[in-house]
Amino acid sequence: MIIGLIGFGKVCQNLVKLIKSDDIRFITSKENRSKSTIESIDNSDVDVVSSFREVAAKSDLLISATSPASSIEIAKKYGKCVKGIYLDLNNISPESTLEIDKYVDNLIDGAIIGKIDSDNPTLYISGKSADELLFLNDFLDVVVISDKIGDVAILKLLRSTYTKTLSALLIESYQIAQNYNLEDEFFDVISVTEGDDFKNHSLSRIKNTLANSKRKSEELNEIIECFSQNELIMVKAALDKFSRL
Rank of each mutant, 00 (worst) to 15 (best):
D117N: 09
I112G: 04
K83I: 12
I116G: 05
A69H: 06
I112W: 02
E39W: 06
D60Q: 04
S44W: 01
P94S: 09
D141L: 11
S44I: 13
L136S: 05
T37I: 13
N106Q: 03
S93I: 12
S70G: 11
I112A: 03
I74E: 03
I74S: 07
S93K: 01
F135P: 04
L134P: 09
S44L: 03
D138I: 13
D131R: 02
P121N: 01
I72E: 11
V49S: 03
D119M: 06
N91Y: 12
E99V: 15
V142D: 03
K115W: 15
S36M: 11
I92M: 00
K83T: 07
D141V: 15
S126D: 08
E39L: 10
L61K: 02
K58T: 07
G114C: 05
D45M: 12
I74Y: 01
N90F: 06
D138H: 08
A75V: 12
I92V: 15
D47W: 09
N120P: 06
D117A: 12
P121C: 07
V48E: 02
N91C: 14
S51G: 09
S126P: 10
L133P: 09
K128C: 05
T97R: 02
F52T: 09
E54A: 07
G114D: 04
S40M: 12
L136V: 07
G114M: 02
A56E: 06
Y86M: 01
A69T: 10
V144N: 05
D45A: 04
D141W: 09
L140T: 12
S64G: 12
I72A: 02
V82F: 10
N120T: 12
E99I: 15
G110I: 05
D147Q: 13
D47A: 11
D117Y: 08
K80E: 04
S71Y: 04
S118N: 04
D117G: 04
K77C: 05
S44Y: 01
A130Q: 13
E95R: 10
I72Y: 01
L134W: 03
A130W: 06
G79Y: 05
V55Y: 00
N120H: 10
K115A: 14
E95L: 13
S40D: 09
E95Y: 08
E99P: 13
L140S: 10
P121L: 03
Y124T: 10
G127V: 09
E132A: 05
G114I: 07
V82D: 03
E54Y: 03
V144Y: 00
S70W: 08
V144K: 12
I116Q: 11
Y103P: 14
L61T: 10
G114V: 12
D141G: 11
I116Y: 06
D60T: 11
R53L: 09
Y103G: 13
S50Q: 15
I85R: 00
E132G: 08
S71N: 07
N91M: 14
E73W: 06
N43Y: 08
